[in-house]
Every structure is written in C-alpha cells, then in structure tokens.
C-alpha cells in the first residue's frame, strides 16, 4: 500500500512539473517588455564591459530571439571600444528586426561614432520616412544631417539641414530656446562658406546661451580674424581659458567620441 501511495504521488508531481512551464509569447509586446526589464536589470548589475553583460542579453535571446533591443544592448561595449565589425553586425540586426525604433540610432552612430557621414545620411533619410520629425540623442534628425553634410564639406546642404533643425525646435512653441549646438554648427557652416556676417551673428547667438563653449569662441575668433576685427585675439584667449577650465561641447556621447570640428588646445596654440 505504502509503495502504491509513493507511486501515485510521484505521478502527481510529474504531472505538475510537466505542465507547469509557461509558454513564451514572444509576439506579445507586454511579454517582450517584461523580459527586457528583467534582463536589463541583470545586465546593468555588471555593466556593459563585464562578460555577464553579454550573457544576460544572450539569455533573453534564448527565450525570444527577435527582440531588437537586446542586439542593440549587446553592441554597446563593442562600439565604445572600437570593435566596429561586431558592433554593427548587432546594430544591423536590431534595425532589421525593428527599423522604426533603431534606424535613427544607427544613423547617429554612423555620424558621431564612426564619422561615416554618407551612411548616416542614408539612414536618417529612411528614419525621417519611418518616424517623421522625431528626435535622437537630444537633437532632430536634421541636426545630424547638418553635421554629416558639414563633415562631407557640402556646406549648402549643411546650412539647409541646420535651418530645418532650428525651425523644428520652434514648431511646438515659438518661445523655445534654440539648442546652442544648433547655433554653433550653423555658425561653423557659415564660416566655412565665407559668410562671415552670418557666422558672427549665429556664433554670438550661441554664446548668449553658452558663453563658455570653447568652439563658439574659437570660431568667432577665426571669423573676426577674416574680417579684420581686433576682437579676434580676445575670443581666442577666451576659447583657451575655457578649454583649460574644462568646458567643452555639452553632449552625452562626447566622452566616447569627438564631435565634428571639436577643438583642443593645440588648435588654439597653432593659430
């Protein structure tokens, strides 16, 4: 009798174990989001340079292999450490799975991290069609298109893109401040176009918002040099002083990569 009871209980347990496993509903957005939340917390306990970062996201992908964000997260350490082959293989996968969410981000990486301005423009064009008038990393798509055209020395296109960027910032409220870096890059574009009056005006607008920005002081000094304005020396000195005090382009990703036309002390000392 005792043996029969044990056998009966064993069958009961087997049944419970056999049928208790829930089925992953990888198509459900709610399920995907909850997975991302759980595995993101696991990954961030270690940070993205720890092997457990990759292991955490791989565990998620073992459950649902089509969650784009996991590929994007896996790419982070490779990107920040200069391994572009691995980084972009993963970024491409994220874009393939969910272009609406990730193509603008990849465009941003092309523009700021790898200075691949042609690819950045292609991706931003596609991003604009998929999600019009959106922002990525604090700026409009047009801002980065302006930077990319500046990098390619296509100044007319850069001017148009940066004017669009500024216009977009005022669409919701005319009273919005323009981002100082929009003014900075428009000023640099005008300087490169030899439009010195416009360059002076826009760079001064930039300095009204961020007086210590070394690049704005530096390019205003160069503009004044071209127009024979004696204030050139004063602004060059300001650029040097603020750089030495640690002021710089105020962008989150500046820690990892230099922004276009970003200066260092050697640029000032050589003038």
């Amino acid at each position: 009798m005792g043996r029969l009871t044990i056998l009966f209980l064993s069958f009961l347990l087997l049944k419970v174990n056999g049928y208790s496993q829930s089925v992953a509903d990888c198509k459900s957005k709610v399920f995907q989001d909850s997975l991302v939340q759980v595995y993101s917390e696991k990954a961030w306990k270690f940070g993205y340079n720890h092997p457990q970062w990759q292991a955490s996201w791989d565990s998620l992908l073992a459950i649902c292999p089509d969650i784009a964000m996991a590929y994007r997260e896996k790419a982070i350490p490779y990107l920040k450490n200069g391994d572009y082959a691995k980084a972009f293989q993963l970024e491409d996968k994220a874009v393939e799975l969910d272009p609406e969410s990730w193509i603008a981000y990849r465009a941003f990486l092309h523009c700021i991290f790898t200075k691949n301005y042609e690819r950045a423009l292609v991706d931003f064009e596609r991003a604009e069609k998929l999600v019009p008038k959106a922002y990525i990393m604090d700026h409009t798509y047009s801002f980065y298109k302006g930077l990319s055209c500046l990098g390619l020395e296509e100044y007319d296109k850069a001017e148009q893109a940066l004017l669009l960027d500024i216009a977009q910032q005022h669409e919701k409220s005319a009273n919005n401040d323009t981002h100082f870096n929009s003014f900075l890059y428009l000023g640099i574009v005008y300087y490169e176009m030899k439009e010195y009056v416009k360059a002076e005006k826009v760079l001064k607008d930039c300095l009204r918002l961020y007086e210590q920005l070394p690049e704005a002081n530096y390019y205003l000094a160069l503009t004044f040099k071209k127009t024979g304005n004696a204030m050139a020396t004063q602004y060059l000195e300001k650029a040097k002083e603020y750089l030495q005090l640690g002021y710089k382009i105020n962008e989150d990703n500046e820690f990892y990569a230099n922004y276009p036309k970003q200066i260092s002390l050697s640029d000032i000392n050589n003038k």
């Binding site: 340079n49 920040k80 450490n81 820690f255 990892y256 230099n258 036309k261 970003q262 200066i263 260092s264 002390l265 050697s266 640029d267 050589n270």
Partner: peptide, 18 residues
Amino acid sequence: YAIYYYQVQAKYPVSSPA
C-alpha cells in the same frame, strides 16, 4: 584592470582634425 579611457576622461588630448 579593464578600465576604459572614457571612464577616466582620457581621450587623446589633441583634436581629430589636428
């Protein structure tokens, strides 16, 4: 230790154009 340049603000201090 595996410390990266961006954790200690150690980008090479000469601009990319220079």
